[in-house]
Design a protein around this nucleic acid. Structure first.
Length: 276
DNA sequence: ATCAGGACCTGGCAGC
DNA sequence: TGCTGCCAGGTCCTGA
């Protein structure tokens, strides 16, 4: 399930494979992935003869920068891009294919069909959903522990829910939310507004550090994630709580627990992360 | 206004 | 063995 570090690794590997290529045609065998425009024919027409100039990322979204358009793509849990030769055998989970003028094609594969694509006129993408309401990333200049403190004070919600809210901070998903709460020794069900200044400072440092470390490690290959070169990440070996329920806490030896918080599987150490 | 929970999907696996 | 049914997850939408 790609979160920010995984999407960043996809961006870096895929950019090398598609930059400068011109789209000759598009085919979607599962058009529901394309959310905007509403008519898939308009999607095909708009993309014809467009050249890919850049591939950017905001939070967990990939943004293909074309001549006149920006294509915003979210991989959700299992979305995956690859570049193939035109005649390569098709995979039954490939749902959108972008055919290039050089005989290669970009294939979007997504077993669960959860991914989304939105096409906007270039420059309009930031003004519309899904990008419009994205908050800052943990390493962006507008992010700070002061910013977090203000946001936490505004809500009655528990901290885990707030960390997963992309309008507050962009980029954390279920894996890294559990990891940073563990590292900051904060119980996932604490109300965000009850966190002390020290805890918020620790938490905001861990958010940036954890995501950066994971990017360098190639992301976490939990389940099926690979980058567009087919490489797996290694950060899953460094996860301290996610998926380790039943095993010993690396700090205190207590058996790690898994519960459900806000409808999500949530891993934590009942000793290190007390709920007062 | 705020927030919780449902819908979207399918492969994998536990339980009968 | 073969079936059922639940779980995984991020985001938008709905309704309380």
């Amino acid at each position: 399930m790609p979160e920010l570090p995984e999407v960043e690794n996809v961006r870096r590997s895929l950019l090398q494979l598609v930059q400068g290529k011109t789209i000759q045609g598009v085919e979607a065998s599962w058009p529901k992935i394309i959310k905007q425009p509403l008519e898939v024919e308009q999607f095909y027409d708009a993309l014809r003869d467009q050249t890919i100039h850049d591939l950017q990322r905001k939070g967990k979204f990939l943004i293909f920068i074309l001549d006149d358009y920006a294509l915003v793509s979210h991989l959700r849990m299992e979305g995956h891009y690859s570049v193939n030769q035109n005649g390569d055998p098709a995979d039954k989970h490939t749902h959108v294919t972008f055919m290039f003028s050089d005989g290669t094609e970009l294939r979007y594969r997504d077993v669960r069909k959860f991914g989304t694509m939105h096409l906007f006129k270039k420059g309009e993408e930031d003004k519309e959903l899904p990008l419009a309401k994205l908050g800052p990333e943990p390493f962006s200049p507008s992010f700070s522990s002061e910013y977090l403190k203000v946001e936490f004070q505004k809500t009655e919600r528990i901290i885990k829910t707030v960390l997963l809210d992309q309008t507050i901070v962009a980029g954390l998903g279920n894996i890294y939310a559990d990891e940073v709460l563990y590292k900051a020794k904060i119980h996932p069900e604490r109300k965000a507004k009850t966190l002390t200044e020290k805890e918020i400072e620790k938490l905001s440092r861990e958010m940036a550090q954890t995501l950066e470390d994971s990017i360098v490690a190639g992301g976490s290959s939990v389940n099926t994630y690979m980058d567009s070169m087919g490489l797996s990440g290694t950060y899953q070996e460094r996860l301290k709580v996610y998926g380790r329920n039943g095993e010993a806490c690396l700090d205190c030896g207590t058996i790690l627990e898994k519960t459900k918080v806000a409808g999500r599987g949530t891993h934590f150490c009942p000793t290190c992360q007390k709920n007062p």
